[in-house]
């Protein structure tokens, strides 16, 4: 038994020198990188979430690829020569696959646009598509150049308020995009740098001008989601606006985050215009 494992591990090492041909991914975000960069026919399997249009930006490309639910059995069945996984998801699966001698590469969730760039390059290197990755980065940076800005001191304030009261601080991809779109992130005033929970009382106290909402399916119910529909949010003067950003635009790293940035910036400009108009009226 041990011999077989060592032997297969050796084989895998040999293949690793060439570009991997059967890549498996057990994380939605590594899925996205793969679907963006990989050569046709080299993806063995992606997660089932990647076929969902609400969470996966490249879901159309995933439709033809076999899906997995992050279980080791499913992955082994594809005999992959490279396994991609997130730091925190499917931990038992990645441990098991590592013990079995598969090459497992872990990606943390990017915390800034800069880290997205680094991850794209690393992914390009891993799957032998560095050139492809550089092209994607170049286009992305060119678009960023045109739209990215920095919040002015009197810029309007924004806060993400996800089901359960979760909010995201400056030290995160979403936070970075909010910053580059020229919003001041109010999560900071609640003492949240990366990820934290803010209750409704605190939300009313720090009173951001707008909230970011990422809608779920209309028939979806939970206490967590219900919190966002609390009647007090309709009565208070602030938060006054809701900015809706589709989840698939920024839950993972990739060039699509620029789309999120553009939408956020447009929303800010509209709100600022409205504020000026109402001031002129009064």
């Amino acid at each position: 038994m041990r011999f077989i494992i060592v032997a297969s591990a050796c084989l895998i090492m040999q293949w690793a020198n060439a570009a991997p041909q059967r890549i498996a991914s057990v994380n939605l975000c590594t899925d996205q990188y793969l679907l963006l960069l990989a050569a046709p026919g080299t993806i063995a399997t992606v997660t089932w979430l990647s076929q969902k249009p609400e969470s996966s930006y490249y879901y159309e490309r995933a439709l033809r690829i076999p899906v997995n639910h992050g279980e080791a059995e499913e992955i082994v069945a594809h005999a992959p020569d490279l396994v991609l996984a997130g730091f925190y998801s499917a931990r038992t699966t990645t441990h098991l696959l590592q013990q079995l001698g598969y090459q497992v590469e872990l990606f943390d969730h990017p915390r800034s646009v800069k880290q997205v760039r680094e991850q794209l390059r690393r992914m390009g290197d891993l799957i032998g598509r560095r050139e492809q990755a550089e092209r994607v980065i170049k286009t992305m940076d060119a678009r960023l150049q045109r739209v990215a800005t920095q919040p002015a001191d009197d810029a309007p304030t924004l806060m993400q308020y996800a089901p359960g009261g979760y909010t995201i601080g400056r030290d995160s991809l979403v936070g970075d995009i909010m910053y580059l779109a020229g919003w001041r992130n109010q999560a900071q005033n609640a003492g949240v740098a990366h990820l934290g929970i803010v209750d409704l009382e605190t939300l009313l106290m720090i009173a951001p001008l707008a909230l970011i909402d990422s809608p779920l399916a209309p028939d979806s119910y939970s206490f967590a989601e219900q919190m966002l529909k609390h009647p007090v949010l309709k009565k208070t003067a602030r938060p006054k606006f809701t900015v809706t950003i589709e989840r698939k635009l920024w839950i993972c790293g990739g060039p699509m985050v620029v789309d999120a940035l553009i939408e956020l910036r447009k929303a800010r400009e509209t709100i600022e215009r409205e504020a000026i108009e109402s001031e002129q009226r009064s």
């Binding site: 359960g164 399916a217 119910y221 206490f223 967590a224």
Partner: peptide, 13 residues
Amino acid sequence: LAPSPYAVREIAL
């Protein structure tokens, strides 16, 4: 089995 992805965390509630 619930449609909401947040539901699972709420059993304890």
